[in-house]
């Protein structure tokens, strides 16, 4: 944790400096950050004096700017050099408050089912202790062996570039923008046909922006006040969480890209019940998500 007694007007710059020094990308290490070194520097943008434009760039900062390395080999689990450096997370204090960040690592596991064509179905227990959550998000990284869980608390994750995706209850976040210090960008694919999504090419990928430049919360307009994450359109709410089967594309920090879709929020048979009737009976294993995904070649 950086406990820098900097004047508020200069906190952003200092925080950024400290953060980048602390978490210089080191893909081979399990987590370049001290797990206990939770950030206060990332709170810098909570201060009203902070220049919002400095902390919330209008576009993704690095993917297009950085010298992109050769195309990575998705067949290995050794990511290529990252294409972005870590940076301070804007609106971290607001995120911690609004998204209820906790300091308890999520104890659940991720199960990966290999599918044909190098695809996976990952089953993520994102219940986090129930509707009144008691555990952090499930943080995970896409690997050639499947979706791999990382042992991070929500506070740790504010300074970790090792994770790609975070899941808890109905919320799924990518590690970028106001969500994390990395540059995992995403977008909803224009096609609803899984097989036809083969490249990132024509997609305008973006970072997470569920807080605006003045750290005001941006909700998903669902009526249940969720954060407007990139993946929020995977569901609609009509008495229960109905699946849209939207397909998303995410470009990871190492330059690789994945396509993914959330198949179910409830047990599959209960999900069908919800999708067809707008109601879901119990027990239904709400928040045990099934994610179908694969690397894009």
């Amino acid at each position: 944790m950086n406990l820098a007694p900097s004047p508020s007007s200069s906190r952003t710059a200092l925080a950024l400096t400290l953060l980048c020094a602390a978490c210089a990308p080191s893909p081979a290490a399990p987590d370049a950050l001290d797990a206990d070194a939770r950030s206060s520097a990332v709170d810098a943008n909570a201060n009203a004096n902070v220049d919002a434009s400095a902390s919330m760039p209008d576009r993704a900062p690095t993917l297009d700017d950085a010298a992109v390395t050769d195309a990575p080999n998705p067949a290995t689990d050794a990511p290529d050099a990252p294409v972005c450096a870590a940076r301070a997370v804007p609106c971290a204090d607001e995120s911690a408050m609004r998204l209820r960040y906790l300091t308890v690592v999520n104890a659940s596991a991720i199960t990966n089912e290999p599918l044909a064509g190098g695809e996976f179905r990952s089953i993520i227990d994102a219940r986090a202790g129930g509707a009144a959550v008691t555990q952090s998000y499930v943080y995970a990284r896409f690997t050639s062996d499947g979706l791999r869980k990382l042992e991070l608390t929500d506070e740790d994750a504010l300074r970790s570039t090792e994770w790609d995706i975070a899941l808890r209850r109905f919320v799924i976040r990518l590690n970028s923008g106001v969500s994390g210090p990395s540059c995992v960008l995403g977008a909803r694919a224009s096609s609803a046909d899984w097989a036809s999504v083969t490249a990132v090419a024509d997609l305008a990928l973006g970072e997470e922006r569920y807080f605006d430049g003045t750290c005001q919360f941006v909700d998903d307009r669902s009526g249940i006040n969720g954060p407007a994450t990139i993946l929020a359109p995977y569901w609609t709410y009509a008495g229960c969480l109905q699946m849209t089967h939207a397909i998303f594309v995410a470009r990871l920090r190492d330059g690789r890209a994945v396509k993914l879709t959330v198949e179910s929020y409830y047990d599959p048979d209960k999900q069908r019940e919800c999708d067809e009737t707008g109601m879901v009976s119990t027990p239904n294993n709400a928040a045990v998500l099934r994610l179908r995904w694969s690397f894009l070649r």
Binding site: M1, N2, L3, A4, P5, S6, T17, L18, A21, A22, D34, D36, A37, R38
Partner: peptide, 14 residues
Amino acid sequence: PTFAPDAGADAGSA
């Protein structure tokens, strides 16, 4: 505490 300042002595951990 485990969050000792990591930016020099004047980094200001309380």
